[in-house]
């Protein structure tokens, strides 16, 4: 049961925290949550097809399909989060404008659906294989329910916590969360790329696992929230920092363009 809790909680937490952040941020930008059902449907569909075709996907690209698809999804979501930061900063004060509004909704739907596809596929595979095939229903299902319940509860707190803030602060905090989440996703993508031998394997720069072990609860939470890595390599660290810089750069760019627009007026 405990392994079901851990697997499901870890996967759900990553997705739910990001989706709740996007929900709060989109609401602060003046959008209703109409995009959410679309994202959920796409996400479930994506997760289901990913799980069903996992074998074919794994065999693609000389057996490295899984890594390549996972890394692509992770990087795509990371890019979408950077776009989110740009939109949140730039269009904070004109919520009803139509083109940026559509862009915001598009980012929310795409990022949520892609994240759900990846996380959901693993949950589906685990629950189906062990709950249904191996007949450990009670154990797997209660574990999955506990994991999913904890993840969704934390997401609920996050959503209402963010909504309780004044909308401008809410957007700033959301952008901050998007920045670290995006960097965490880039970090995860580097594992897959390393595993597929696309990024070179390197010696770790340091080892902080004695401080916070990745397998500990704190480590798991830090990994889900910030992309914590106890033994980062030079390539991983630079990509992580580059992603944070890109997110901050997008926000700075948006500030500048807002300023010039106001100046022209």
């Amino acid at each position: 049961m405990i392994s079901a809790v851990i697997i499901v909680l870890r996967e759900v937490l990553e997705g739910v925290l990001m989706i709740c952040m996007l929900m709060a941020s989109a609401s602060a930008m003046g959008h209703r949550l109409r995009w959410l059902p679309a994202a959920l449907v796409l996400g479930f569909f994506g997760a289901f097809s990913y799980a069903v075709f996992l074998e074919q996907i794994s065999m693609a690209f000389d057996g490295l399909g899984q890594e390549i698809i996972s890394a692509s999804l992770l990087l795509a979501v990371a890019v979408l989060l950077i776009v989110h930061n740009f939109l949140a900063t730039r269009h904070a004060n004109l919520p009803e404008a139509s083109a940026p509004a559509l862009a915001v909704l598009g980012v929310c739907v795409a990022a949520s659906a892609m994240s759900m596809s990846r996380e959901g596929a693993e949950i589906y595979l685990y629950v189906y294989a062990f709950g249904v095939q191996a007949g450990e229903m009670a154990s797997v299902l209660s574990g999955a329910a506990i994991g999913a319940g904890i993840g969704l509860s934390l997401g609920t707190f996050m959503y209402y916590g963010l909504r309780a803030l004044p909308w401008r602060t809410c957007l700033w905090v959301s952008a901050g969360i998007a920045t670290v989440t995006g960097a965490g996703l880039v970090m995860q993508a580097t594992y897959y790329l390393g595993q597929a031998d696309i990024l070179p394997g390197q010696a770790a720069l340091w080892d902080s696992s004695s401080l916070v072990a990745e397998s500990s609860l704190t480590g798991e939470l830090l990994q889900a929230a910030l992309g914590y890595e106890a033994t980062p390599t030079a390539v991983q660290l630079s990509l992580y920092l580059a992603s944070i810089l890109a997110a901050l750069g997008a926000m700075a760019l948006a500030r500048v363009s807002v300023k010039t627009r106001e100046y022209r007026k």
């Binding site: 049961m1 809790v5 509860s153 609920t156 209402y160």
Partner: peptide
């Protein structure tokens, strides 16, 4: 725009869920 009913239901359920599930895990 935000519903008090949904907010109260979700947040209270979430608190109960967290408390009972975490204690269940601990007990387990």
């Amino acid at each position: 725009m935000t519903s008090i009913r949904i907010f109260l239901t979700l947040s209270v359920s979430a608190i109960i869920l967290l408390v009972s599930f975490l204690s269940a895990i601990r007990g387990y």
